[in-house]
Design a protein around this nucleic acid. Structure first.
Lengths: 101, 101
DNA sequence: CTATATTTGCCAAGATTTGACAAGTCAATA
DNA sequence: TATTGACTTGTCAAATCTTGGCAAATATAG
């Protein structure tokens, strides 16, 4: 499981019977780049997520969630304190959210 | 709450009655940089965490946890799907961990 | 073998982060 | 109010990291 985002994009693309060469230009990149993105070797730019969601007729929220999860995972993988750090981050997140209401 | 790591470092440093000018050289930086780190405007390098932990007679694990939490928070702050993403990342983390055992 | 789809390797260009310094604020106090 | 010491802020070039684009390699199907 290299990149949840990439794997999901590939699945969706295949479900739509689209080739890299068809999708890549819509994102203004070449097939090599999109291939790397699907394999998790590169990151799609955050602002392109809604675009690819539309191309693949998928939920932008779902793809954004997977994309963010990949970024988080990149930070904590191989870290002994990963779980503790996630918990602390979550608490901060909820604390800030509560404050904003 | 800008940076949990930075705030903790400052607290620990003050508890030890140390000045920036005393601590900074031990990390091979100037006081300006360390000041920014404590205020969350810069990140300490990951590999320097054990060093600062020793200087401040603090737990390396604790500081690493806060440092990682800051990195995670940076990824998800202001994101609508933040909580969902954290959950997905956590699942992946536990999945991988289970596999490694 | 040929054609098409995808993957991989490379490296220059672009973007981001850091290091270093100078100048600034602030508080205590002579 | 002038001085000193601690800390902060702004700037910018250098260092580091990431991306874009191309060419060549591989894979698959006919």
């Amino acid at each position: 499981m290299k990149s949840q985002f990439g794997e999901r994009v590939r699945t969706l693309r295949e479900k739509q019977n689209l080739y890299l060469r068809q999708v890549a230009p819509l994102l203004e990149m070449d097939t090599a780049q999109l291939s790397k993105i699907e394999k998790g070797l590169r990151q799609l730019k955050r602002e392109q997520i809604p675009i690819i969601a539309e191309i693949l007729k998928a939920s932008s929220d779902e793809l954004m969630t997977l994309w963010l999860a990949d970024q988080i995972y990149e930070v904590v993988k191989d870290e002994k304190m990963a779980n503790e750090a996630m918990q602390v981050a979550e608490q901060k997140l909820n604390f800030i959210k509560r404050k904003k209401k």
